[in-house]
Design a protein around this nucleic acid. Sequence first.
DNA 1: CTGTTAGCGCCTTCAT
DNA 2: ATGAAGGCGCTAACAG
Lengths: 339, 339
Amino acid sequence: MVTIKDVAKVSGVSPSTVSRVIANNPRISEDTKKKVRKAMKELGYHPNVNARNLVAKSTKAIGVIMPSSANVALQNPFFPEILRGIGSVIHEAEYSMYLSTGETEKEILSEVQRMVYGSYVDGVILLYSRINDKVTNFLREQGFPFVMVGKPQEHDTEITHVDNDNVRAGKEITQHLIDMGHEKIGFIGGSRDLLVTRDRESGYVAALEKAGIQECEGYKIHTEFLKSGGREAVEHLMSLSTPPSGLVVSDDLISLGILSMLESYGLRVPQDISLVSFNNVYLSEITRPALTTVDIQIYTLGAQSAKALIEKTLNKNEPAKRIIIPYEIVYRDSVSQLS
Amino acid sequence: MVTIKDVAKVSGVSPSTVSRVIANNPRISEDTKKKVRKAMKELGYHPNVNARNLVAKSTKAIGVIMPSSANVALQNPFFPEILRGIGSVIHEAEYSMYLSTGETEKEILSEVQRMVYGSYVDGVILLYSRINDKVTNFLREQGFPFVMVGKPQEHDTEITHVDNDNVRAGKEITQHLIDMGHEKIGFIGGSRDLLVTRDRESGYVAALEKAGIQECEGYKIHTEFLKSGGREAVEHLMSLSTPPSGLVVSDDLISLGILSMLESYGLRVPQDISLVSFNNVYLSEITRPALTTVDIQIYTLGAQSAKALIEKTLNKNEPAKRIIIPYEIVYRDSVSQLS
DNA sequence: CTGTTAGCGCCTTCAT
DNA sequence: ATGAAGGCGCTAACAG
């Protein structure tokens, strides 16, 4: 391995001068800079991060924590997309990105502890927001810089988070169904432990209320991500004496499963039943029918969270903030006008 | 930050003793071990990786390189799934995982160079295999430990890689179509720059040959991953004087797009046209119809590549190997018997 | 402008 | 079985 000393020797200067050249210190003459850089090139020198981090007490790396991967939720294209968003600013800032890999909450916690205690990273991005989350609590207790994608369960003024206004989005998309003449509207959500599910559900409820529509017993269902849960949800809904004519589904991926179930029940979307959902994952464009869904700008969510985190690691006094990314409803073919 | 010295002071021993306790050196008495460990716990001591890496000249970290993310290919659930597989053994071995984030090939190359030159990682996993890949070449030239998921374009006896027998799989799945009475069989593949596309295509060709079926002009198409390309592919195929009755599609995600296009042309699968594909991503179960596809065991692909890489970083003399993961055809509802 | 010195936190001889 | 000393590669005062 080529070290700073080798470069120093070859270019006939001291190691510290080389170090300063690397940092592009203005107090080094252009001549020596040139000389040193030439030597670096010749020798194929590249600084060793570990040595650098050791003295700098900073790693220029951030940890990205996915939710526990025991279930298929992780298969959601949401993740590659948000990773891309994070990656773009990480790359720009010349940071690196550590990915958590745990399957269970316990494994994840231990990984985060390793990252934090072992100075692997300067900060952490949490790609989920869930009730009573040990990881969140740990990070808070440690006072370790982190930002959350989604809304914190509590202490939301102390935790920097990047989120959509999911309540409003839920309200608005439900309102769309109402505007199209629907009154019997069901809600199918993912786990209620996820804050995002709760928010979207609140929006749904608010829209109904505002329209003076009575909430129906049994119209609200929570299910696991894919088909198994989807099956039950659809079975349940359709066995009701007055089944809904419209569905608000909290995630495009769930919608996919629902769509499939609906079809197997001989129900056509949107002719027999309308459906709207959230995320606008690329898949929602190629389902049949294409989904009317809320585009939450996943990429931006990722990019902004990375940006906020980096700022925070650079300046410990950076105040906590809430960053709300605008959403936009994308109208496609999964909703029909009820006369 | 709590250091080894603090622990030493509190437990009344020297720093080196503490270090030995961490390494669980057998020449330290159980008594002092106990004493030291107690102090570590009290103080909340955790070793600093950077310091450790610096002297150990190893990072216990691996880099994972995704293909360039300029296109939607990255949205393929293949990636979260393979990441899970890698993660499982990484975690087990107490390694960490760096994720590349570049969007273009150039960015990716520069990231890999940083990883390698800067001693960020001990080895690298390439999640793709493409023609004339600069990253692969760089890694080879450097003699840096890496393994590839897929088949190397060249030097395949020198590069450890984890792959399926895609030629055979392609042949077998095509044979299935033939067995079901199909003779006019088209092939829709992703980029020909990807080795995997080529292999699957070779299998397709081999099956036709074996069955004595003449390859038809215009039956082979290569397209970008999602809909835009899918549209053209379907348009082209269906405008042929004798359109195919069966389709071999090189990736489930492409199949999704094709399915959608087909439907918009009023073609029903499998009644009007049959379709088989590859990967058995969870989505292929909830499409309508559910896809008959080759289960390539993505998770295992990831786990085995991580395992092979770790072995390689631990023992530089570990010979290059080819690891072939078995596949299995999953029969579902996208193929019909032709009488 | 540049060199010298010290030290980041840890591990590893070499002593004892 | 344990301690002392040196060094991994780099940066940051402090001199000059």
